[in-house]
Nucleic acid binder design. Structure first.
Lengths: 197, 197, 197, 197
DNA sequence: TATGAATGAGCTTTCATTCAT
DNA sequence: AATGAATGAAAGCTCATTCAT
């Protein structure tokens, strides 16, 4: 019973992701979500209290998933540079996936700039991202590949700023073929930041 | 006649900016805009074809203004580092102004991820921003303060990515007091990128 | 301008009365009201904040009107018995009008039993009705046609209870032809109450 | 089997009464009723064809119960005045019970003013109430305590009109402390009506 | 019997847009 | 030029009812 309900919610959230990706945060309707899920409008209201609860759970869900994938990627590697490369491979996964996720994500950021609920969820995501950065930097310092006096916290934040800045800029250019350019440039920039004290 | 009309449009656009800043992109109504402008709803429709035209003209207007201010700032300086510092002072102008502008701007990015009209306007803004970066880098290379083999185009793009990434991250943290932290960290990161080949 | 708006509100309220009379308080829709008024649904929302505000203004309006008519009726008469007869003629005006009003009124009473807004409006109506009773009774005592030790307040309340009880009972019987029976019986009962100390 | 079903229906009707009393006639949902009964929504539909059938059976049930209690009360007494007093004690049982019942009852009257099904049920209740009045009056005439030429039918109807009028007025005033006032005033008024030809 | 997941009709409300003045 | 009354499409949400289990 409980399991079925969880699956249903998951199904609706997946549909919501698709719907927001194609219609945009503020244009998306519950009907769109229901259509994407292949269920009736009633189902959406049966499993979620209201529209905002679907969307905030969606943000929660996708940021959690992204983080999990990223964290798993760096966990499999053992040196700082390997972790960094794995992280970047993960972050710049592919034009298609990045486009879909960032389209949705920038919509949520737009909301978060006003809505504390989204803001809090995004902040938790930031914390996770920064932690990945911190882990890589700390390890690199131990290994002696990054300067010992590098500011861990600040650099971790700059890493994520660079990543989000690059992927946003890439998304806005509307050119899938530049994905690789941005990936390489971003990696190079971050490497520079990490190797300079 | 023509002049009066231009002033009217300008008045409405200013009101639209305030209205979007306070109510949010997708919550703002034409009534809100009319109220902020101190005119009737009819006026808004008299000077603009529809809601989207107001908002796209607004994006056009604010990005043009931002660029103009930034460009003027660097024009007044003569060395690369002076220009860079002036640019950053201009970009990280103050918590209040940055918050107002970026709240509106992330909303437009969210739209631009889907709407080609906004996308084109934003791309023109990017071009202008990149040009500022290029100008600074090229001058610095001439002056011998930046490595001669630095990739001008790529670095200019990374500069803007860093700036947008930092200001977005700052905005999402909801802490005005971190404005200075992000400003300094961003300047330091960009300096590092510019001084490392 | 202002006058036109007042007329519009009045028009909508009249339509609301007709709509509630034919569909019932809780079945009536804003579309019904708009249809009865011969306007679009938007107009109803343009002049009233929401559904409840229409309905509470309706109760306010009809109770005020009823009172006014009743008060004017007794004002035109000079002796207690003349006033009483005029009052009863007014209250039991006709099967059609009584049916329409009481159908709507019992719906409001049903709401008022739960909603303080309606309750307050109804209480004001009661006060007015009781005042009419008090006026008649006080005059009758002065004239010597009613016992001097008759309790003015209590008797006024019982008068209205008798009237509402009779008209409700008549309405529920669904027989227009009994209107006259109830009118006479009510008048006789009230006369008895007034003439017995 | 049959018995179980009867008990189930009774259970649902009791729950419906509580639910209507607390949520109001037109706000009450089948879920509310199911919750009050401690059963699932399906059960409600299993034993009742639809929402209206529950509510009409509820009206049937509560009016029958009220009558039964009232009738039993007067049956235990032997003189007209004793019966009248017992009747009034029964009718004005307590602020709590009267409030609960009349809140629900006025809602049904509101429905009955439009719906023949409810109207018929209420008419049957009226008949029962009038019969109680008739019984008391007839006995009183036999005993010589009421005028011999008193119109039995009419007076019985006026008795009930007075009772319903008083209790409705009391309910609408929202003051529990006036319960006793209305009880006494009602009894006095009815006594006057009965003792005056 | 009993459950509660699923449906979708129908409601209130918002608001961009039109247009008579 | 300017107003704001009027429109009605479209949205979120509620809930009686159905039905597979």
């Amino acid at each position: 019973m409980k399991k079925k309900a969880e699956e249903r919610k998951e199904q609706v959230l997946k549909a919501a992701f698709q719907a927001v990706a194609s219609h945009g945060y503020d244009s998306v309707t519950l009907q769109d979500i229901a259509d994407h899920a292949g269920v009736s409008k009633g189902v959406v209201h049966y499993y979620f209290h209201n529209k905002e609860s679907i969307l905030s759970e969606l943000l929660q869900s996708i940021t959690a998933q992204i983080y999990e994938v990223e964290y798993r990627a760096i966990s499999g590697k053992h040196t700082a540079m390997e972790k960094l490369n794995a992280y970047m491979d993960c972050v710049f996964v592919s034009p298609e996936k990045n486009k879909k996720f960032y389209r949705v994500y920038v919509n949520f950021l737009a909301q978060a700039s006003r809505n504390p609920v989204y803001q809090k969820i995004n902040l938790a995501f930031y914390e996770n991202c920064w932690n990945i950065g911190r882990e890589i930097i700390t390890l690199g310092k131990k290994e002696g590949v990054f300067p010992i006096d590098l500011d861990v916290d600040t650099t971790a934040k700059m890493m994520r700023a660079m990543i989000d800045g690059c992927l946003t800029q890439w998304l806005m250019c509307g050119r899938d073929d530049l994905h690789d350019f941005y990936k390489k440039a971003c990696l190079k920039s971050i490497s520079t930041l990490l190797q300079t004290s």
